[in-house]
Amino acid sequence: MNGYNFAYLDEQTKRMIRRALLKAVAIPGYQVPFGGREMPMPYGWGTGGMQLTASILGADDVLKVIDQGADDTTNAVSIRAFFERVAGVETTTVTPAASVIQTRHRIPETPLEPGQILVFQVPIPEPLRFIEPSEQETRLMHALEEYGVMHVKLYEDIARHGHIATTYAYPVKVDGRYVMDPSPIPKFDNPKLDMSPALLLFGAGREKRLYAIPPHTRVESLDFEDHPFEIQRWEQRCALCASDKSFLDEVITDDAGGRMFVCSDTDYCLTRRGELS
């Protein structure tokens, strides 16, 4: 695009982000502060993920962008069009064909492969933020590995509801050290973080933090012996592809209580339907 550098960001900004990314993979789960820049899209709409993608993307990459698991949601369409415009890269909806996948709120159902990079858009990177609003305090808690309050919070849920009431952005511990927010993915996706063959990068633009999980890294979801971590399940199968292993979106079909359940991952669902037909 005329007047803008390849992938929009100037080279100095990319270098700053690249240096921060190397620190992030060296200290898995630690939130590295970085000099986040304004992007031509609103904060909260994926500017952190976009800055990371812009800093790693090359001319021979194949980019996939999903939001809620789907390639065709408006924000995914908008971000994909942005990178087509400013970087001229090839884009795809096919998970295995992508070298870089930017995502909001989901990890694809199709298992990721070595060499792939998944870039998460993160709204609030601090897993302790809703327990302790002050950045100065939470920074100290991470430094001292003081994570008791997080377990207390989860346990209060159990006392009140009989269950841990966190269903997305469910906190994890990375390589036995840092408690980390995996971004608002459903806890259904948490097991995919553990020993993932792909590199996982997380970018929070407004909060100016980035973090990473290298491939093959231990990632445990916080839980209790008497209340082990569990993921969502559905009685139904996907109404379109009949999968009983994917995360299902509920779709309201009429105003008389009619509803159906379909895969949130559109590429996975379409691929299965291609195979089935």
């Binding site: 609103p42 909001r104 459903p186 979106d249």
Partner: peptide, 16 residues
């Protein structure tokens, strides 16, 4: 930006 991001789809979290 952050207030208006509530307009973006949250199907998955809401479903959870």
């Amino acid at each position: 930006g952050f207030v208006s991001h509530l307009k973006l789809p949250h199907y998955v979290d809401f479903q959870s």
